[in-house]
Nucleic acid binder design. Sequence first.
DNA 1: GAGTGTCTACCTACTAGTAGATAGATAAAC
DNA 2: GTTTATCTATCTACTAGTAGGTAGACACTC
Lengths: 195, 195
Amino acid sequence: MKPVASTSEQILDVAQSLIVAGGYNGFSYADIADAIGIRKASIHHHFPTKAELVSALVDRYRQQTELGLKSLQEQSASPADQLQSYVDFWKACIGNASLPFCVCAMLAGEMPMLPDEVASRVRGHFHHLAEWLTSVLQAGAKQHPFRLDKRPEQEAQMLMASVHGAMLSARAFDDPGLFAVIVEPQIAKLRPPVR
Amino acid sequence: MKPVASTSEQILDVAQSLIVAGGYNGFSYADIADAIGIRKASIHHHFPTKAELVSALVDRYRQQTELGLKSLQEQSASPADQLQSYVDFWKACIGNASLPFCVCAMLAGEMPMLPDEVASRVRGHFHHLAEWLTSVLQAGAKQHPFRLDKRPEQEAQMLMASVHGAMLSARAFDDPGLFAVIVEPQIAKLRPPVR
DNA sequence: GAGTGTCTACCTACTAGTAGATAGATAAAC
DNA sequence: GTTTATCTATCTACTAGTAGGTAGACACTC
């Protein structure tokens, strides 16, 4: 029922799935062209250079992410539920292989050789995600559910690393369930110990 | 004073640093040839195909790693010290940029498009590292220093993910110190809470 | 003289990117 | 209301450069 995606959206869709699989150098204009049945030149019409294509892709990804995280907060669930929903999102993505790796985590690994315009956008995503997690942890500590050992900024960094590391392990061991096995106890540890 | 490295060792050295920077598709035979001042064809003499080159590279990396981890255990330090030494190794690598990312973690991100012979070796490294961490945690729990919330296998997976995620964050934020900020509290949490 | 290592010279396939043409839609000009 | 102009999206055909890989010659060593 949803309207047919425009060509440029299709290009970004395919490019995204190819990047998730193999990173910046893991795909070519020819791969995209073949996948959606157009010519390479048509892709250059929409995105003159590869750096521009990937920049647009990261921009779109960040916009979707920021919208999603904001709406999670505005659904007025508790901080604990917000965190759980974030984790559940990735659990689902990895489980059904729809988006089995964060685009920006993938690109972050290749940081040293990314075009500047792409690298700065990826860095921006990491900053935003860290801030979102910090604010959720802060809210959770102020109310009841969380007890933080460290400053919320630091706990947020630890959580983020755990999520990205868990994605990597799920991929390395070829075991989607491993993601939850790693991340769930990590957020459980934020709750005050049962005495 | 150490003997000049053989050509094939030099090739692996350069290839390793290029993989760490940009992954499997992030380097070419020409890059290696330029870096050590020989021709592409000479590299093919030592490593006929790229898949063989990277396979040899991962084999060498795994051998070094397994030797290093074993010697850590045999230096008869306490499990807590063994774990700390492991973390300190990466802290130093990232700090002085000598090896600012685990070769296998880098390649694991590209798993879906790696040649099978490479992918299976990378998976092997993850299995071995998980086993080593498990055995250290197990020893630490049997003696005094660690109190584990979960089964040692699971705690080992959590720790490994944290380390790899921390490498990624250090790179994404361009902040080598971030690695320790993330990992240190994670191993501190393994010690029994002060009561 | 059999290996070993390196070279020059080459190959085919693919890379990102460009040039120029075409077809259809839109809209203003007369 | 037809003409003229512009825009958008696509195409075919091409470029220069790079990818991984090969063939064969030359030397040096054991």
